[in-house]
Nucleic acid binder design. Structure first.
Lengths: 352, 352
DNA sequence: CGGAATTGGTGTATCGATACACTAGCCCAG
DNA sequence: CTGGGCTAGTGTATCGATACACCAATTCCG
């Protein structure tokens, strides 16, 4: 229970607290080597480490950054969180985790808790379409970095963003499927309440248009019910597959909004006796670890998630440590198509 | 940038800071309703929220709990983290995340960082076999709850634990496979540096012994190389499957230390043209979300992970808020066998 | 050799919230 | 009319670290 303080160290080293503080804060050139050594030894023997709370109170500086993702139970965001944490700890920061479940009310509560905790920077693993619920914190001095950048410009709200071109992502997938001969390509989206989802949908629409394929709204499955958040991605993918494959003219290929949904599509197809990839090509986005080794390895878009995590952390720390009110930064990293076995050449109407 | 303080509220409400503090700390009976209302209004209009750092400095109370898991990129620990976070936030606590990568040095660094941050309670998502590297923090007053309890008694170190009976887990699986007629049952473990792994291995050994089946050490694959931590579980499972299936007398069933390893075993079997479940039964432990919907749904052990998370949080908060030096608490929750399609009756030597 | 400049420190107000110790004013009993 | 007990507050030392302002002793230099 013995909480060692700076005063204990000073006493043991026969110096003032100021000197200890000076050493701790890199002003050690104002000190004879012998004195420095005495202080360092005292710190060592007492096992002293400064109280972050006291330091924060005095300096306003907090060694925490917030990370808000829809859910770390999702492997994609789990990986993202792991990389964010890795990068942050290398820079001496710790990560406070929050799961928003894509609910703006929860997101707001978190952000406010974080503000109270002295946190001045938050990384959003995924962005709700609207950001207004956080604007008041931004006014007070909170910094935000969001994972995705809306390609729809005109955000009323200023945050840095680092992410991938989601329009490009589904464009690559759509082109890939078109090249394989598919013409009826379904899209399993789930709720379109996040920017990345709107963009992915847009990439799909645009590419079809450019190829003069008429868009059939029936082929786009957007939502199960109003039941946002609580239903797992896998379950949603399954529901989407059930719907699309039960259409009078079912698609011969399905793009899922992400890999977890794609696995749900696998399951849904299996339920209906539809074989992947023989009867149905399936593609996702994210390239989570399991995608490479699932029994039918999944064609997907690889996102440079580790780079995104590291850049996000760097960006937020830069804002925290030397914000000079720069313009918002928007980075867009390339994503790449990874073709595996879940997509195959169109074989005509395989079953009727 | 305007940081509202308790003094601002006091000024606006025409009361002393003491009164505001009294209201904030549940001493509101010492106050006329009208006064209380004035203060509440002032808090509202200023959007005031107290500084946790200042509060912590004065009271020693910290609203954070630490969570250290091997890696949140692992879906099992991702889910666990999500539930821990959920339970914590309901109680007004926030979660500081750390990924140990099963490295005791990293674990120690985290724990010390957390100590500096004023955190006095840490939940370990999984326990290394030895805990000595944390003992000094325990002496100073840190509280620990660990996910697994060693059934090997005689821990020199005192922490609460909440978990499942890992011996029972693999016992259920082994019995299940024996009942299906399997006699050569392989075990893919990976490094046995964590308590839960030793226990799972033990359950396997004991059950075989009880059934008078001689133990063939060749059938137990423990480690790839010294390369702890960095290799993914899937990759390890794959390596294990390659090894086991290349034996002169390969097993007809494989138990994997967890579901991620089991998926690796799927992949490894596929590489060698071995069909699951026809030629090889595979079972895991954890029941992660994907296990139910993978193309061959996985037989596994379901752990009551949400309950474990909630109980861990309750335990640690109880220690934080009213520790009276009680004896360590050890809870063991039941786990259940879930039979899916990855395990099948032994068919004799199907190939080879 | 005297004054300026440098070296090697130290004293202390301050950050924001808390809670103990205190009190002004009022009521009522004796 | 005095004093004990209550209500509805308030004053302020304190938590631990920081950093500005300050200072004593030494060194430098013309």
């Amino acid at each position: 229970m013995a909480k060692t303080t700076i005063a204990d160290v000073a006493r043991l080293a026969h110096v003032s607290v100021s000197s200890v503080s000076n050493l701790l804060n890199g002003r050690s050139q104002r000190m004879r080597p012998a004195t420095r050594k005495r202080i360092q030894d005292a710190i060592e023997t007492l096992g002293y480490s400064p109280s972050f709370a006291a330091r924060q109170l005095k300096t306003g500086y907090s060694p925490f950054i917030g990370l808000i993702v829809p859910s770390v139970a999702d492997p994609f965001f789990g990986s993202f969180a792991r990389y964010v944490e890795e990068a942050a700890s290398e820079k001496g920061y710790q990560v406070l985790l929050g799961n928003s479940e894509r609910d703006s009310e929860r997101e707001r509560n978190y952000a406010e808790m974080l503000w109270s905790s002295g946190v001045r920077g938050i990384i959003f693993g995924s962005s709700l379409v609207k950001f207004n619920h956080l604007e008041h914190l931004y006014q007070e001095g909170m910094h935000f970095v969001s994972f995705y950048r809306s390609a729809h410009s005109g955000d009323q709200f200023i945050a840095d963003s680092i992410g991938v071109d989601n329009i490009q992502a589904t464009r690559l997938l759509t082109k890939h499927l078109l090249a394989l001969g598919h013409r009826r390509i379904g899209f399993v989206s789930g709720p379109t309440d996040m920017i990345c989802r709107l963009d992915r949908l847009e990439g799909y629409y645009k590419t079809l248009e450019e190829s003069d394929i008429s868009i059939d709204q029936q082929l786009v499955w957007e939502e199960a019910s109003g039941d946002t958040g609580s239903t797992s991605f896998i379950e949603l993918g399954k529901q989407g597959a059930h719907y699309l494959l039960s259409l009078p003219e079912p698609p011969s290929a399905i793009i899922a909004i992400n890999d977890m949904h794609a696995f749900g599509v696998y399951a849904g197809a299996r339920d209906l006796g539809v074989n992947v990839p023989d009867d149905l090509s399936v593609a996702g986005v994210d390239d989570i670890m399991l995608s490479a080794v699932s029994v039918t390895p999944l064609t997907t878009i690889k996102q440079p998630i580790r780079d995104i995590a590291r850049l996000s952390v760097e960006r937020i720390i830069d804002r925290l440590e030397n914000d000079r009110g720069q313009e918002p930064v928007h980075l867009m990293l390339p994503s790449t198509l990874i073709v595996r076995e879940s997509t195959a050449r169109y074989r005509g109407r395989s079953a009727g």
